[in-house]
Amino acid sequence: MTQPLCRGARTLGVALGVLLCPGGAWAGEEAPRAEPCPVPQEALLSAPEAPRPAFQPVPAALSVVPGLLFHGLGTWVEGDTQTSKRLFALEGAGLGLLAVGGVPIALTGASRRTIGPLYLVALSGAGLFSLSAAANLYAAVAPAFPPGAPAPALPPVEVELGYQHVYDPAFDYRHFLSLGATARLSSVRLEGSVQWAPGEGNTRIRMGGAYRLLGAPEQARGSAEGTALDGEAAAVFHRFGPQGFAMGGVEAGVRGRYDMVRLSRRLEGSFAEVSAGMAFQGYSYFGPVSEDALHEQLLFSFGYGVYLGRQGPVRGEALLYYNHRKDDFPGGVKAAVGVLGFFGMRGRLFLSDRWGVSGDVQAGSAYVGRVSVVYALGGER
């Protein structure tokens, strides 16, 4: 059962709404303006809740055909008109933003003078439409299984070691050793990762961090809420030894997560995630430097995920996403409107207080798969 939103959570709703579409974050708010903030997760888990709706195969089938074109059709047939109206509204807002950004891009031939703002509007529309479609499917199948919940606290330190395989027709490298680490201290998160291809002269290093602008720190959520907004920054270095060049750059942006139970009770256990920012990059060649060595890149990603587990040590999450960047191992997908980013699915699951696994699959102009073992210092509670 969701609680009345505190001022910080209400502000977060506005921030995420601006990132997606005006007013979108308020679509699911029914609680009054009064305090208090969310109560501890233990109280939420023990509080009585209304019975969850039973799974019905016909509405679930209609959510796919023709529900993927008319979001909310399955829940409407099932009698949940409130959720249907909200999903229809999100779909309509997404299509509207796609038209506002996409039509000028087509008419101007993707002019460099206007492509940046128009791409941002069009990507926001695509993200909103995609998230609405995913929520539509989740609402149809969610009654068939108990919903997961975010961990009330994440470990102060995590390290992971794994293997990454890259299939890229343009390059010979294939096998990588993957190493990563994350440290959390109150509202600050520091993270770094290295992918190294032994004997193939290819290495990618990323060092960055984030500051929790809104929402409870990851180490002390203290409630069944994962909604948050972070400011992020990072530096990236990628060396292509045999090809004779290297890429380096810095980037900054914001990333927001919104627990979809705020939109509808049927969406409990799922979340939407959106990020936006800019990257400034340069290419250094081992020979003469090209005039186009310096450039900037719009960063944008969106995804729909589910929490895994609710009580006990088995806890994690899975996310299906799109990332608009093209300088990572998957590259970008060529399309009629230019070069898009890549699609992916990642997951993280702790099997005990200290040990877990994580994985990531990505598809763009290249295909990337990674699997890692995760060790938590301090344990995940």
Score class of each variant (00 low, 15 high):
5 L>P: 12
6 C>N: 14
8 G>V: 04
8 G>A: 11
10 R>I: 10
11 T>Q: 09
15 A>S: 11
17 G>S: 06
23 G>K: 01
25 A>Q: 14
30 E>D: 12
35 E>Q: 14
37 C>Y: 11
38 P>Q: 00
42 E>R: 15
43 A>E: 14
46 S>I: 02
47 A>G: 09
51 P>E: 02
59 P>F: 03
60 A>Q: 04
61 A>W: 00
61 A>G: 04
63 S>N: 09
67 G>L: 04
67 G>H: 00
72 G>M: 02
74 G>H: 02
77 V>P: 03
78 E>I: 00
80 D>G: 02
81 T>I: 07
83 T>I: 05
85 K>L: 07
88 F>P: 00
89 A>C: 00
90 L>C: 03
95 L>E: 00
99 A>H: 04
99 A>Q: 05
107 L>E: 03
107 L>M: 08
110 A>V: 12
111 S>V: 00
111 S>P: 03
114 T>W: 12
114 T>Q: 10
119 Y>I: 14
126 A>G: 06
129 F>S: 11
130 S>W: 10
131 L>Y: 09
138 Y>H: 06
139 A>T: 06
139 A>M: 08
140 A>C: 05
141 V>Q: 07
141 V>F: 15
151 A>I: 07
155 P>T: 06
158 E>Q: 09
158 E>V: 02
159 V>I: 13
160 E>F: 12
163 Y>S: 04
169 P>Y: 00
174 R>E: 11
175 H>S: 10
178 S>C: 02
182 T>F: 01
184 R>A: 02
186 S>E: 14
187 S>Y: 15
188 V>R: 03
189 R>A: 06
193 S>C: 04
195 Q>S: 04
199 G>Y: 09
201 G>F: 01
201 G>L: 01
204 R>T: 06
206 R>V: 05
208 G>V: 03
214 L>P: 01
215 G>H: 03
220 A>K: 08
226 G>V: 15
227 T>G: 13
227 T>M: 10
228 A>G: 11
235 A>L: 06
243 Q>E: 15
246 A>I: 08
250 V>L: 10
254 V>T: 11
257 R>Y: 12
258 Y>I: 08
263 L>F: 07
264 S>N: 12
267 L>V: 00
272 A>V: 11
274 V>K: 13
278 M>E: 12
282 G>S: 08
287 G>D: 06
288 P>R: 13
290 S>C: 10
294 L>V: 14
296 E>I: 06
300 F>E: 10
301 S>L: 08
311 Q>C: 02
319 L>N: 02
323 N>A: 07
325 R>V: 12
334 K>D: 08
334 K>Y: 04
341 G>Y: 01
342 F>T: 05
343 F>D: 01
346 R>P: 12
349 L>N: 12
350 F>K: 07
356 G>I: 04
357 V>G: 13
357 V>H: 07
358 S>R: 13
362 Q>N: 13
367 Y>N: 15
374 V>T: 15
377 L>W: 13
379 G>R: 06
